[in-house]
């Protein structure tokens, strides 16, 4: 196993330990707590009233829109990250800082236009 991959082993180990803690916590309260169950106690909580309808109902489409936008802009961030990491090294290697700079600025500018478009389309207006 290469040295780079070896460094992931502690992550796996802490994942194991964290899962172990989570399972133990889930089980202990199940074993040690009292269990006196009534129908009223197991109802969904609605401030004392009997629950009205089902909670698994339709909800605003804006939540989907936000998630879609998130994916778009997050991909942008993902593209920016490798560029940012090699920015200095690449500029050094090519001997041309402005090229590396301009390349990404064009990308950011394009995205900014998209951002303004989304804004003008009213996706960010929550109260409407």
């Amino acid at each position: 196993m290469s040295n780079d991959l070896q460094n992931y082993i502690p992550l796996l180990m802490s994942f194991g330990l964290a899962s172990l803690i989570a399972t133990t916590l889930l089980i202990t309260s199940r074993l040690l707590g009292p269990r006196i169950q009534t129908r009223e106690k197991l109802m969904p909580y609605e401030c004392g009233n009997d629950p009205v309808g089902n909670a698994r109902d339709r909800f605003s489409v804006k939540f989907y829109l936000v998630c879609l936008l998130f994916i778009l802009f997050d991909i942008e961030a993902i593209i920016l990250i490798p560029w940012a990491v090699v920015y200095r090294a690449l500029a050094e290697e090519l001997g041309n800082k402005l090229f590396v700079y301009a390349e990404m600025m064009i990308f950011v500018a394009t995205l900014f236009v998209g951002y303004i478009y989304v804004w003008k389309k009213g996706v960010f207006d929550w109260s409407k």
């Binding site: 202990t28 040690l32 707590g33 269990r35 169950q37 106690k41 197991l42 109802m43």
Partner: peptide, 8 residues
């Protein structure tokens, strides 16, 4: 730990 564990 000693509280009741409810599942609705």
């Amino acid at each position: 730990i000693f509280k009741e564990d409810l599942i609705p």
